[in-house]
Design a protein around this nucleic acid. Structure first.
Lengths: 352, 352
DNA sequence: CTTTGCCATGTTATCGCTAACGCAATCCAG
DNA sequence: CTGGATTGCGTTAGCGATAACATGGCAAAG
């Protein structure tokens, strides 16, 4: 077995075209192993179709020159990519990060790569990001919620690629959806608060025009209030921005302006924690003076003193199932339902 | 101006090779606009080199068929990609997410795409992820910390691409580093606690073999303890796992086994919050019975009751500068220092 | 009325890899 | 034996874009 030497000058005929990133190519490996690139390609993807000796020679050559296959070339040539695009509103929220992390792990375990974009709760930013990302001809897309621009929907349809919507439970999913009903969860928490004896329940809602989860949670609260025959006082809906601080502000407002409120249901745990802390700063006993409930069940919720009553959402499960269903769909063998409901759980702790 | 019609059968000579992902190509656009692909390519990247009329025709054609350029083809052909790889230990930590988010935003604003990987504090997982990601021939790489396997370093060197290490301040960076000295921060916090009158300062450290930040923080604590002539009692170093719950455990241990400890310095805010909550559950007054300090300055730190004394780290600034330096380096016009120190700040609040 | 030169566009040859097919050598059943 | 299947590898022709060079036309310069 002879190792073909590089034809002298063959690489030097012109000044090196690739100034940087001059990594070894399959042709380099092939030359070293004295085979063609096709055999190298087979050795990487279908090693059982290459004889053991050749395989060994190729592996040695790969190690020798530190070859890493060029995925751009691969996906161009094979007309498929190992890229999954995921679009999330934010990752500063441990609730979403849980889902993202689960997706990321599932994908890397299956040799897929994650292109992540942050929409910042803005459907136009979502559109911008998506229109960039589809340039990579991803094999699948994970997108949050069900509110999208028409061009976004067009892009998704046009790309003819499996799409999983996560974190809600739409009536008509674009393709497949994995999540739970935010409205139902909110409804049940409100009813639970009522069941625990609270009668004047305020709702702290988030001011975010395109956030359909926030809207659904508000709807659930309203539906429960109406059904329970509670006083549908619009002042009980306190609108705030994001963040823990906003929760504090809401509580401050309630304590001074709405002294008869006996429970505060916050649209997210972050808000609830802020509210809880504000109550403590004002020496109010939670839950005896005022109860607090959140939404999300972040790690902190259980540790806090008093611990936080909240809606537990299966954030990791959503990510795992979204990723696994996506890969199944890519392989063309997903048989499950179009709408996967991962459920939720009302978790009663000390704060209500 | 005539619109050339598709040569009959030219596309149908064979059954469509591309079963799915059959998106419009540049050739389709060119045909519609009656120009060559080269002109379309120019229209997209250097529109000033195309006449206004042609430009308009091309733009119309692009809209008509919903064309999105294929980045795999682009990067293969141009030998450069718009992909940046970022490797972080976790995103379940709002401190890292802040940096990731800043990077993500900076990159999408500059038409770069983020390939994100989670190493889970494991340098071998880091290596695996990286070896996959370099297949995309990224234009730049962001990596956390300074502890890497030798093959990781080899891959980084071999890829001949700008690399920014973040979140620490190495003596000899691989390429460029953006962060701060974890050891120094920990040292100064320990000295500050001493300055505020605490004499028996416990340190809650994280049990993670490859986490160099955790190690550096421990070193800073030890150096301060030695310099201050405090009792270098190894029992004062409490080793725990990750998470808020681990912080609680540490505090429980201290309260029962080490009653003379007057301050607890935790290697992360998450631990500190857990510790604080445990102290409250045991009806200890913070800081009068026992003080607590953290590291990171998460949003919660300022809201908590009592608010948390901690080390503020410029997580967003690190991300922004890392991303901007990376793009500068890619453009070949970075002139700044190899080690960028973003500093930190000891923030005294109520807990110590 | 040439000449120079720029402007707008076209032509050709890759980039690194893989699909599809081709072909010789080996294998096993009848 | 012998013919069809199998095995192992090579050949050819792209995938969709861009770099580099080529070209024709029209304006300013001589």
């Amino acid at each position: 077995m002879t190792i073909k030497s590089r034809k002298p000058g063959s690489k030097m005929a012109r000044p090196p075209a690739r100034a940087q990133g001059s990594m070894a190519t399959m042709a380099d490996v092939a030359r070293l192993a004295d085979v063609t690139t096709m055999t190298v390609s087979r050795a990487l993807r279908t090693p059982d179709k290459v004889s053991p000796e050749t395989l060994e020679r190729i592996e040695k050559a790969i190690r020798m020159c530190g070859f890493v296959p060029n995925y751009a070339a691969r996906s161009l040539s094979s007309q498929r990519s190992q890229v999954i695009v995921a679009l999330f509103p934010t990752m500063m929220n441990s609730v979403f990060s849980g889902t993202i992390q689960a997706i990321s792990k599932y994908l890397s375990d299956n040799h897929y790569h994650l292109l992540l974009g942050e929409t910042d709760f803005d459907i136009h930013k979502e559109e911008d990001l998506l229109s960039g990302f589809v340039g990579w001809r991803p094999a699948g897309i994970v997108i949050t919620g069900g509110a999208h621009t028409s061009r976004t929907k067009e892009l998704l349809a046009n790309s003819e690629v499996p799409v999983v919507e996560v974190w809600n439970k739409p009536r008509y999913p674009l393709d497949v959806s994995v999540g739970f009903s935010n409205a139902q969860a909110s409804y049940e928490m409100t009813r639970s608060l009522h069941g625990w004896g609270y009668r004047r329940i305020a709702f702290v809602k988030i001011d975010s025009p395109h956030n359909d989860r926030a809207r659904q949670r508000l709807e659930g609260y309203r539906r429960a209030v109406a059904e329970l025959g509670l006083d549908a006082d619009s002042r009980l809906e306190i609108q705030v921005q994001f963040g823990m601080h906003a929760g504090s502000e809401a509580m401050r407002h309630i304590l001074t302006e709405l002294p008869d409120v006996d429970a505060v249901f916050c649209s997210s745990d972050t808000l609830a924690v802020g509210a809880l802390m504000e109550a403590q700063r004002n020496s109010r006993k939670v839950p005896s003076d005022i109860a607090v409930a959140g939404f999300g069940d972040v790690e902190l919720a259980a540790e806090l003193v008093p611990s936080l009553t909240t809606v537990h959402v299966p954030r990791v499960e959503i990510g795992q199932r979204a990723a696994s269903i996506l890969l199944e769909r890519i392989a063309g063998r997903y048989e499950g339902p179009a709408v996967v409901d991962c459920g939720f759980e009302i978790v009663r702790r000390e704060s209500a």
